[in-house]
Amino acid sequence: NQASVVANQLIPINTALTLVMMRSEVVTPVGIPAEDIPRLVGMQVNRAVPLGTTLMPDMVKGYA
């Protein structure tokens, strides 16, 4: 099963992502693939992302 990117903490709206904010986990539904974590660093979320939430492509500005 493919691992997805999951929020390791509450990520406030418009926050630029850092490695410490994300972890990989096998979840359903599948979100952004864990191998894209390096690409996500520095990108901003367009909404608040609660701890444990799977990051979906539409949550990250410029990802989709």
Results as ranks from 00 to 15, higher is better:
Leu19Pro: 14
Met59Phe: 09
Thr53Asn: 09
Lys61Met: 09
Met59Gln: 05
Val5His: 00
Ala3Cys: 02
Ile37Tyr: 09
Arg23Ser: 14
Asp36Ser: 12
Asn14Ala: 08
Ile37Val: 05
Pro12Gln: 13
Pro29Ala: 09
Pro12Gly: 09
Met56Asp: 10
Ser4Asn: 02
Thr28Ala: 08
Met59Ser: 12
Val49Trp: 02
Ala7Leu: 13
Glu25Arg: 08
Thr53Arg: 13
Ser4Asp: 01
Met22Ala: 02
Ala48Met: 05
Arg39Asp: 03
Gly42Met: 14
Val27Phe: 03
Thr28Ile: 11
Val26Gly: 05
Val26Met: 03
Arg23Ile: 11
Tyr63Glu: 05
Met22Lys: 00
Val30Trp: 08
Ile13His: 15
Tyr63Gln: 06
Val27Leu: 12
Pro29Phe: 10
Ala3Asn: 08
Pro50His: 04
Val60His: 01
Asp58Thr: 15
Asn1Tyr: 05
Val45Met: 14
Val6Met: 05
Gln44Ile: 08
Thr15Gln: 15
Ala64Thr: 14
Val45Lys: 00
Ser4Thr: 08
Asn46Tyr: 11
Glu25Asn: 11
Asn8Arg: 04
Val5Ile: 14
Val6Tyr: 03
Gly52Tyr: 08
Ile32Cys: 01
Met21Ala: 04
Leu51Ala: 07
Ser4Cys: 02
Arg23Leu: 07
Gly52Asn: 11
Met56Ile: 12
Val26Asp: 03
Val5Phe: 01
Met22Phe: 15
Val26Cys: 03
Tyr63Trp: 09
Arg23Glu: 12
Leu51Met: 12
Met21Trp: 06
Met22Arg: 00
Val20Lys: 15
Met59Pro: 00
Asp36Ala: 04
Gln9Ile: 14
Ile32Trp: 03
Ala7Ser: 05
Ser24Asp: 07
Gly42Cys: 02
Pro33Phe: 13
Val49Ile: 05
Met21Cys: 02
Ser24Met: 12
Pro29Gln: 09
Val60Met: 13
Asn46Ile: 13
Val30Ser: 14
Met43Phe: 08
Thr28Cys: 02
Pro12Cys: 02
Gly62Ala: 12
Ser4Met: 04
Met56Cys: 02
Asp36Cys: 03
Leu17Glu: 00
Val41Cys: 02
Pro57Gln: 08
Ser24Tyr: 08
Tyr63Asp: 07
Arg39Tyr: 12
Leu19Ser: 11
Leu51His: 14
Leu10Pro: 08
Asn1Ser: 13
Val27Ala: 05
Thr53Val: 10
Val49Tyr: 02
Val45Pro: 07
Val6Glu: 03
Pro29Arg: 03
Val41Pro: 05
Ala16Asp: 06
Arg39Ala: 09
Met56Ser: 11
Ile11Ser: 01
Ala34Thr: 06
Glu25Cys: 02
Val26Glu: 07
Pro33Lys: 15
Pro50Asn: 10
Gly31Glu: 03
Ala16Arg: 10
Glu25Met: 09
Asn46Arg: 13
Ala48Asn: 14
Ala7Ile: 10
Val41Asp: 06
Leu19His: 12
Val60Asn: 00
Thr54Pro: 15
Thr28Asp: 08
Glu25Trp: 04
Val49Glu: 01
Met21Val: 12
Val49Arg: 04
Arg39Met: 08
Thr18Asn: 11
Ile32His: 01
Asn8Ile: 05
Ala64Leu: 09
Ala48Gly: 14
Pro50Val: 14
Val27Cys: 02
Pro33Tyr: 08
Ile13Gln: 09
Arg47Pro: 03
Ile13Glu: 07
Gln9Arg: 05
Gly31Ser: 05
Asp36Ile: 10
Val27Gln: 12
Glu35Gly: 09
Lys61Gly: 14
Glu25Tyr: 14
Val45Ala: 03
Glu35Pro: 14
Pro12His: 10
Asn1Ile: 14
Val20Cys: 03
Glu25Gly: 10
Met22Val: 15
Leu51Trp: 12
Lys61Pro: 12
Ala3Phe: 11
Met59Cys: 02
Val60Arg: 00
Val41Gln: 15
